[in-house]
């Protein structure tokens, strides 16, 4: 493999029903930085049917080029067709870096493409950088279930690939009117030859927990012990009109559903206020909430790692602190109210 043949940073821009998925745009931001450092081009990869118009949006978010595959056969995501499409593009245009959002489909596709073109893939990265001299991609992620970050390198294979969690990278500022070049390729597959078929897509209409958009989150860790302790967190959340988050250990213990989980394998959140109660601060949790504007941690262990990330710390027993906090806050809100108006957090 002649590594020098490979140039350019690519981003897989997943679309669903003709709408771009946010993480792809976020990755254009991260990809732009890498491309600028390497003095190379940033390209979006767009696969679907009747999706050509979306290219404009990619240019406005920083793409120089868009590789497009527009075909009825790729209308919906299927590993078979997308893997072929992406694989063909890689073989033909030889990017040095290829990023995917860590969504169900993004992870699925990246894994398949990695095997298809025989290269390395780093999962669930949270930090991207590049060694310009060696043109070596440095993809970092939390590792070994602990407080450790590891940088994964792929020295001898190209492209260097990674999946990146949604919400970790910042969506770039839109530059209206910015344009670029669309390179359209075709896919040589016939529906009859395919082994899979999407029969139906069922969208979940009931609104789940929306951590990603929450302004205030009160999150429970294993320190709450059981449902009773979790209730204290919910009580505070009610008063603050906050969304309830949780660490993985709480979810694993069956105290609440997975849709409450914050962290590497849960939601990545960026609220204005994050209250962590009884959370130790393992790196997998931290990467999901460290960009919150203000973090207040409650923990009875003064050495808990969460205090390294939090802005304010309360060292104390959450079973005592949470009810107090609820009570004091209620009082404070009441005072505000008396001074005028009804509190509303809508």
């Amino acid at each position: 493999m002649n590594l020098d043949e490979y140039r350019g940073v690519w981003v897989f821009n997943e679309q669903r029903d003709g709408e771009l998925v946010d993480v792809g745009l976020e990755l254009l931001g991260a990809g732009r930085e890498l491309a600028d450092k390497l003095e190379t081009e940033l390209c979006g990869v767009l696969i679907g049917h009747n999706v050509k118009d979306l290219a404009a949006e990619l240019f406005e978010h920083g793409a120089d080029k868009v590789y497009l595959i527009d075909d009825p056969i790729t209308e919906q995501y299927r590993t078979e067709t997308y893997m072929k499409a992406a694989g063909d593009l890689v073989r033909k245009y030889k990017p040095e870096i290829f990023l995917y959002g860590a969504t169900s489909n993004g992870k699925d596709l990246a894994s398949a493409v990695a095997t298809e073109v025989m290269t390395g893939l780093t999962a669930d990265t949270t930090l991207l950088d590049v060694n310009v001299e060696k043109r070596l991609f440095e993809a970092s992620r939390p590792a070994f279930g602990g407080n450790i970050m590891a940088t994964i390198l792929c020295k001898k294979h190209r492209p260097q690939m990674a999946t990146v969690r949604p919400k970790v990278m910042k969506k770039p500022e839109r530059q209206p009117g910015r344009t670029g070049e669309v390179i359209e390729e075709t896919i040589s597959m016939r529906e009859e030859d395919l082994r899979t078929k999407i029969i139906d897509i069922v969208r979940d209409t009931k609104k789940g927990v929306n951590l990603e958009e929450a302004d205030i989150i009160v999150a429970a860790g294993k320190g709450v012990k059981d449902e009773k302790g979790f209730k204290l967190v919910e009580d505070l959340a009610t008063v603050l009109n906050a969304t309830v988050g949780a660490s993985r250990d709480v979810v694993e213990a069956g105290i609440c559903g997975h849709d409450h989980q914050v962290g590497q394998t849960g939601a990545t959140v960026t609220p204005k206020l994050y209250i962590a109660a009884g959370i130790s601060g393992a790196i997998q949790h931290i990467v999901g909430m460290q960009n919150s504007e203000m973090i207040i941690a409650i923990n009875n262990d003064p050495d808990a790692a969460i205090f390294n990330t939090a802005h304010y710390g309360i060292v104390g027993d959450l079973f005592e602190v949470l009810p107090l906090l609820t009570e004091e806050f209620k009082k404070a809100l009441q005072e505000e109210t008396e001074e005028g108006g009804v509190p509303s957090h809508a």
Partner: peptide, 9 residues
């Protein structure tokens, strides 16, 4: 193809 480069807290 992938190797662990550095690790750090």
């Amino acid at each position: 193809p992938t190797i662990v480069g550095k690790m750090w807290p």
